[in-house]
Design a protein around this nucleic acid. Structure first.
Length: 287
DNA sequence: TTCCAGGGAGTAT
DNA sequence: ATACTCCATGGA
């Protein structure tokens, strides 16, 4: 399909650490989505894909989000505008909520490489086999599969102590037939509260799930990198006592998380999540 | 060897 | 409510 007026950069979008199931081979990106392997690439103004229909791909890559409007909305300062300029075309993907939830439970206290490894292991061990272009892939396992898995087997996927969180959350969802999708129409704060009831889910993981899979573009996840961004570029916009506190200790207490989260949401507005992802990737690229 | 990674739960104040 | 401490694992 032609995307002349639709900014999109697949490399930024698929490399920025929001999604863990994509790998580039040649100029094609291969991923496992919607229960099957698909591939996408860009050639000049053409956005090409295979093994998926146009409607699905448009929605998955959020091509109906107006990036120009978003840039106007969040481009509040020089640093943010620089990140927008440098990473123009980065989009927030609309992941499947279930896979997103488990992925970000795994993501706590781990780097992106390790997270990809864990999600791949879970899929290989518990998912269903499929293939594309002669290559083998595995789908992400259903809630029932992980709910019935042995914690030991989950831990052996590299999850470590997260194994029991993943199993408990899978049980909560499977046994209650919980529909994460239903939270899409629940207001941000209420939806966040409900997601925090799952095992291994705190405010940061909840914000990631809301932003990356439930359409809450106002969510503003604060991890170690975003804290660093704020300390390096937005320190003067915080109350001085809070700024002092943040500089003097590592990690982030629950109340301090809430303060930085509120800062991001208030400062950047309804597309704070886009601001977060541009700032996150920009900081990582320049470190 | 030591350190750190897209934090959260458990426990003690 | 807030602060402190573990937590499994793997790569650098």
């Amino acid at each position: 399909m032609k995307i002349d007026d639709i900014p999109l950069n697949l490399d930024f979008t698929l490399c920025c650490g929001q999604v863990f199931r994509w790998d580039k081979k040649g100029d094609w990106w291969y991923g496992v989505v919607d229960g099957k392997a698909i591939k996408v690439r860009q050639v000049s103004n053409e956005f090409e894909f295979a093994n998926a229909n146009e409607k699905f791909v448009e929605n998955y890559f959020g091509l109906d989000d107006d990036l120009h409007e978003i840039r106007t909305s969040i481009g509040k300062d020089e640093h943010m505008r620089k990140a927008l300029q440098e990473l123009w075309g980065l989009r927030i993907i609309r992941q499947e909520p279930w896979e997103c939830l488990i992925s970000y439970i795994c993501a706590t206290y781990k780097n992106i490489q390790a997270i990809k490894h864990m999600v791949l292991n879970l899929s290989t061990k518990f998912g269903e086999k499929t293939q594309l272009d002669g290559m083998k892939f595995s789908t992400f396992p259903k809630p029932k599969k992980l709910a019935n898995a042995k914690v030991k087997d989950l831990m052996d996927c590299g999850l470590g102590y997260r194994g029991k969180y993943v199993q408990n959350t899978a049980k909560q969802i499977f046994e209650n037939n919980f529909k994460l999708e239903s939270l899409r129409k629940t207001p941000y704060k209420q939806a966040k509260k409900e997601i925090c009831n799952f095992a291994g889910v705190g405010p940061k993981v909840a914000d990631c799930v809301l932003l990356f899979s439930l359409g809450k573009t106002e969510a503003f996840p604060v991890d170690r990198w975003i804290k660093r961004v704020i300390l390096n570029h937005y320190l003067e916009k915080l109350p001085s006592d809070l700024a002092q506190k943040l500089m003097n200790k590592q990690g982030l207490s629950n109340s301090d998380y809430a303060k930085l989260n509120a800062f991001g949401r208030n400062y950047f507005g309804k597309y704070a999540g886009y601001a977060q992802e541009y700032l996150y990737h920009y900081e990582r690229m320049n470190t």
